[in-house]
Amino acid sequence: MPVIETEKLSKSFSRNEVVSSISLKVEKGEIFGFLGRNGAGKTTFVNMLTGITLPTSGRMLLLNNNNDIDQIKHRVGVLPDYSTFYDHLSAKDHLKYFCKVSGKTATTSKIEEVLRAVGLIGHEKKKVGKFSFGMKKKLGIAQALIHDPELLFLDEPTSGVDAESAIHIQRLILELQKNGKTIFMTSHNLDEVERICTRIAIMKEGHIQSTGTMKELKKKYQTRSRMQVKLSSHIRKEQKENIKNLLFSYSIEWKDSMLLVDVMAEEEIPTIVHALSKEGIDIYAVHVHEPSLQEIFLSQ
């Protein structure tokens, strides 16, 4: 059963359609990564699912509740892309209040647990007006977690936080997944998405360009991989000539003691190794460079 399901969900701002008929399914336990350039419509899409913006048309279904998202709001946690807090309240007061708004009561130990999880422990009594940008982002994540939701929407959870905190937050997201929660996140950090997301969608100008696991995306967009072979440094000219003849069907390039070959499939790697050893050239290392999410992303 999908936890998130949208059907032709669209949003226009005064005739300008920024999300166009998106149909998407996210299963329980996934960390779904939503990518796209600035202005692609990611936030608008998330905001429709979380009740911040109203869809122009289409259907959405969260946690199998067909009719009314108001009824499942207490089971959903949201970090919006932008928001401020009540400056005169402390972090603790915020969490207490927001938890009550969602119809639950936060115990002191739960508040501490959540603040520790986001790395804000020790700041619980400080007025939020005095928080830094990154600290507010962490409090934003904390308020999304305080009522123990099953489904989380995190719009750029690690943007604006320091490198160490970003890693901390990524670990937290993985931990939440381990505890059975479903996470839908947007990010501009492709490394992060590649590392933690189980499935990815790339959005462009309001449409979903492609969806799939990292493996599926690679397969789809991988036209060729680049094979790097490190060789002994003394290679004679005629050896190079022979290699060129043996591998005439490949595009090859010499770079110092490195041979660079473009291959289409893994099965071609032995052919190249064979050719080299036939010429009596020692191989020190072989490395096949697969396209990263970044390359796939940029090719869109």
Binding site: V101, S102, Q143
Partner: peptide, 14 residues
């Protein structure tokens, strides 16, 4: 204006 409404609107009905 301050968008704090987003925290409320994602937690309970309007």
């Amino acid at each position: 204006e301050s968008k704090t409404i987003r925290f409320l609107v994602t937690k309970t009905s309007r």
